[in-house]
């Protein structure tokens, strides 16, 4: 992987994400893993699947990388998100961040995952023994122009 932004149906590689951001002037590197859980509110989740609006999702992920790198000078950020079925305990998202010092690394990593959950057009479906449901992030839409049509 050489790109700062990846959307793929294949398993994600921590080493690849790390390699994209690490450089000789970096003194800290973090790779955040968002992984899939086997339960939701007491119900067993058998499988999770993700779908995206690909062009827009990549553009939004790229905008988050650019925004983080502007806000924390010297920081490098890479984001990879998996689509399709993601088996339990595997990574659905990886966020790699390197920086000269650790403080900015933690801050930029937190910013990137929080903003991704708010703005990147990707959806998650949980499959249970007795059905399935699309699960929304609490952060969905935060900071975006929006909130369309409310319930009547």
């Amino acid at each position: 992987m050489t790109s700062r932004v990846v959307l793929t149906h294949a398993p994600l590689s921590e080493a690849a994400v790390r390699a994209v951001v690490v450089h000789p002037a970096a003194g800290a590197v973090l790779v955040f893993h968002g992984i899939t859980r086997d339960h939701f509110e007491g119900r067993a989740v058998l499988e999770l699947s993700y779908e995206a609006y690909p062009g827009m999702a990549e553009a939004q992920m790229g905008a988050i990388v650019a925004e983080a790198e502007t806000r924390w000078p010297g920081v490098r950020v890479a984001i990879a998100h998996r689509l399709g079925v993601v088996p339990v305990s595997e990574a659905s998202v990886l966020i790699g961040v390197s920086s000269p010092h650790r403080g900015d690394c933690y801050a930029a990593s937190r910013f990137a995952i929080d903003t991704l959950k708010a703005r990147v057009p990707i959806w998650k479906k949980e499959h249970y023994a007795d059905g399935s449901a699309w699960k929304a992030n609490q952060e969905s839409g935060r900071g975006v122009l929006v909130a369309g049509t409310e319930k009547s």
């Binding site: 062009g55 929006v146 049509t149 319930k151």
Partner: peptide
Amino acid sequence: GRMPVMFAVDEVYAAP
């Protein structure tokens, strides 16, 4: 009711 949605026009977020 109706599902609350966000809108995008030509791959960019757009106001309702």
